[in-house]
Design a protein around this nucleic acid. Sequence first.
DNA 1: TAGGCCATCTGGTCCT
DNA 2: AGGACCAGATGGCCTA
Length: 336
Amino acid sequence: MLTLPFEESHGMCEARFGASYSRDSLAESLEQERKHNSDRSHSAMREADDDLSDRDEDEREDDPDDDDDGLPKKRGPRKKKHGREQMDRSRVRRQEANARERNRMHGLNAALESLRKVVPCYSKTQKLSKIETLRRAKNYIWALTETLSAGKRPDLLTFVQTLCKGLSQPTTNLVAGCLQLNARNFLTDHNGEVMFSGRSPYEAIYSYPGSDMNTPPGHSGSGLDSGAKTFRHYSYGGVYEPYYENPSPEGGSPHFDGQLSPPMNFNGIFSLKHEDASEYSKSGHYGMRYCGAPGRTALAHNSMYRVSPEARFPYDLHVRGQSFQPQGEVNGTFHN
DNA sequence: TAGGCCATCTGGTCCT
DNA sequence: AGGACCAGATGGCCTA
């Protein structure tokens, strides 16, 4: 495909933005050559792209006797007419391309919005930015994948930490708000590493004595009393590796690169979103459902996630499309 | 006011 | 040739 010479790009910049870039002699010579180019159609097309306003074209049209170099122009039915048509056509095509591009971006944004709604802690009031949405979705997918591959009952705190990996502080706060946790308990440092502050936020809310089931690796009960004084640094090698046996999908590194941020749509797991379940039923994929309805203890017979009587967050693994518990109360808790 | 986020325009490139 | 996709540039809006 045709590639415009470098100096012509400068020309476009000048025309579009009114900037006065200095040019070297080579550029000037090439520019003059361009002006004298006999290929009027191509030149006209570029000129039209240089400035979509009609002013230049009209000026040229209004002054037909003068050429660029001051010499009289040829008369008669000219290429000018043809060039004008080309310019108009080029302009129309450009406008059509702009409209297509707008639509394309709208479609992209719509897809992004749908993604926002399926990642955990969707909030209509505090909209997640595009990059944060993508990061969180990636983290979410990763955490779900690791949860399934680990074959263990997921740990909430670890899950949340994974979900928040690499996310901004406001987004982390949002997640914390969703979970009614104190974001200070799983801060993210400058490198995107999750910091954990002593007492497990999970335990802070769902504490029950003598149970380490929901305490993530490295979060033994020894430090629970230290409070915020002692910050424990978490890296994926330190925390997630024991739990998530597989390396990061980023490419083998056991450590997060600071870009990875984890999931919360326990909706898969906890149904943190307020989307109706039909959307998931359509997918036919696996998902873990929050089964925390009062009095509910029975799980699917073949469920890999067993619920201990004292467990506060019983999870169940369902095939999408199968029956699951109403999620209203959960959604009410996790959605703003 | 600086910085972040976003929508839009635009030209280049690739593909059909 | 034309559409899709991409990335750079730009300006507007919002917030700390």
